[in-house]
Design a protein around this nucleic acid. Structure first.
Lengths: 140, 140
DNA sequence: TATTGTTATACTCTATAACTATA
DNA sequence: TATAGTTATAGAGTATAACAATA
């Protein structure tokens, strides 16, 4: 069966997305390498917009809680976040320290600066991309 | 210094891209898991549009040549590709077998089917996204 | 001597399973 | 008994370094 035009375009788009994803990853790694900072930790820092409980972070990063425990250990060890029990005392809440907030801002700037996503697109295109990516991220 | 609106938007876009990239990766893994096929191998197969020398694949996947050697071993072992010396006899050229081409088509379809990028966006949005992603992938 | 690929090894990222503490 | 997190361990993915063959 010959693929329909839509199928063909979808395949190409899927391939494009894979390639763009590779690009995003290498841009990201290059950006955070300047801070001598492992990419997964950088991702966690950037996700900590507000204090978050560990299970929540695990959901956001779509990874296992045990891995968040590791990342949290590392963040605390570096003085970038604190761990404190929540109202439900089984819960641990991660909060960025001032140093963590500071680093987060620097990481965000560096990631943005190194990002082909940002550099290769006009402001208008970036807005469009933002809308499209929101659709993807918020997909069921 | 308060970040300019542009800086703030760029940071948000960078974060969005990271999240979308995570989404793409998990979609991709889910899609190829059906074939009991490791994601990196699937990526390699999808990149083999034409016969390619190994160094070229390494560049496309932005990874080390030694890793391509591994992937190639695996592809050949599975009967999905052949390795043959090029005109320059230092070079090895990877070519998909008919079975490899067949699997590539199936992978492309599955990746497309599982892709939030495809499912969450209209055809028009997909076209727009394609243009934007091309800009990223072809960035210097 | 420079380039292409291979081999052996080691490191990073992440999951699984068993466990502890609180609910 | 169910849920949040931790610990120990194991596996996948990928790089580094030393090497071989060809140019």
């Amino acid at each position: 069966m010959t693929p329909s035009p839509t199928q063909a375009n979808s395949s190409e788009l899927a391939t494009l997305v894979v390639r763009a994803s590779e690009r995003v990853k290498s841009d990201f790694a290059r950006a955070v390498a300047v801070f001598d900072f492992p990419p997964p930790l950088a991702r966690a820092v950037l996700l900590l917009d507000q204090p978050a409980q560990m299970g929540c972070l695990a959901t956001q990063m779509s990874c296992d809680q045990s891995y968040i425990t590791r990342l949290a250990d590392d963040l605390v060890k570096r003085g970038l976040a604190t761990r404190a029990p929540g109202a439900d005392r089984r819960v641990q809440v991660l909060t960025l320290t001032p140093a963590g907030e500071d680093l987060k801002a620097k990481l965000a700037t560096a990631v943005s600066r190194e990002s082909s996503v940002v550099n290769a697109l006009t402001a208008t295109q970036q807005s469009e991309l933002s809308v499209l990516l929101s659709g993807i991220v918020n997909a069921p």
